[in-house]
Design a protein around this nucleic acid. Structure first.
Length: 284
DNA sequence: AGATTCGGCGT
DNA sequence: ACGCCGAATCT
């Protein structure tokens, strides 16, 4: 067998290999196929015998971006990953943006889930997060692995708690002030901290275009394990008043004002810089 | 049976 | 024109 060169792929987690195979016959001779291989995963708790963990077979072959994305789940954002070159290409988000608009307008629920934007993650022994899919097999039938249907997964109760402590930061790593939620929003469940509540609501808004109502069943407070509506955030049902809406409109207005000011200041500064350069005879 | 390879559908 | 994946072919 001709030795195929499996090269490291820096855009993926350590250990992932990329391979390009040229087609050597047929109508498509000269074209190539690109494959990726998952790294061997070793369990390092016992230095004497490192042991392979069984549910993450080493060296699994991947033949497409969707397949790779399903496997890596949320641990890697393949949004700008170019499968053919194996590199991150900034500006590949373009397609997703269009989809997002379309989704929101058309109550889109039918389409495929965007690559890597589904938040719920199940924690497993594997270092890679994998989707949880219920498979029912019938005697004599082959069970198809690697199922396409990644939607309608069972959701872990209170998965929102894992978002606790996540912070947004700007490019200098400066932590940004977190948003204030309106009073009257109350969380449901074992964790009543404000930042978990905020994460839960933000995630709910992000993940679906369905209305966010909070938990409408009163029973959910007493026995969430049974009554919790998992398609709604861990938040008591709330009412939005005209006053809330007016407050929000004011915030948007203020934000636009400060953006306008900033843009104006920036363009003035650029203009000043240009004229100064011109006076000094510099170019570009 | 599993790996390899090319065809061909859908976008 | 190309990504993705089925299935024929190979080992």
């Amino acid at each position: 067998m001709m030795e195929k060169k499996r090269t490291d792929c820096p855009a993926l987690p350590p250990g992932w290999k990329k391979e390009e195979v040229i087609r050597k016959s047929g109508l498509s001779a000269g074209k190539s196929d690109v494959y990726y291989y998952s790294p061997p995963t070793l369990w390092k708790c016992n230095p004497k015998k490192d042991k392979k963990i069984n549910n993450d077979p080493s060296g699994k072959k991947f033949r497409s971006k969707p397949q790779l994305s399903r496997y890596l789940g949320n641990s890697v954002d393949l949004g700008c990953f170019d499968f053919r070159t194996g590199k991150m290409m900034p500006g590949k988000l373009q397609k997703n943006k269009q989809r997002l608009r379309h989704d929101l307008l058309s109550l889109g629920k039918g389409g495929k889930p965007d690559l890597n934007t589904a938040l719920p993650i199940r924690q497993t022994a594997s270092i890679f997060k994998q989707p949880v899919t219920k498979v029912t097999s019938h005697p004599g039938n082959k069970v198809k692995t690697d199922l396409q249907r990644a939607s309608e997964q069972p959701r872990q109760l209170f998965w929102e708690r894992r978002l606790k402590g996540l912070r947004s930061s700007d490019i200098t790593e400066e932590v940004l002030r977190t948003m204030d939620l309106p009073k009257g929003l109350q969380s449901v469940g074992p964790d009543s901290s404000d930042d978990t509540l905020l994460s839960a609501i933000a995630s709910a808004l992000h993940m679906s275009s369905a209305p966010i109502t909070g938990q409408t069943s009163v029973a959910a407070e007493k026995n969430p394990a049974i009554w919790l509506n998992t398609s709604q955030p861990l938040c008591k049902a709330f009412a939005v008043t005209d006053e809330h809406i007016r407050e929000q409109e004011l915030k948007v207005y203020q934000a636009r004002r400060s953006l306008e000011d900033a843009l104006m200041a920036d363009s003035l500064a650029r203009a000043a810089e240009n004229t100064r350069d011109l006076l000094q005879g510099k170019t570009a």
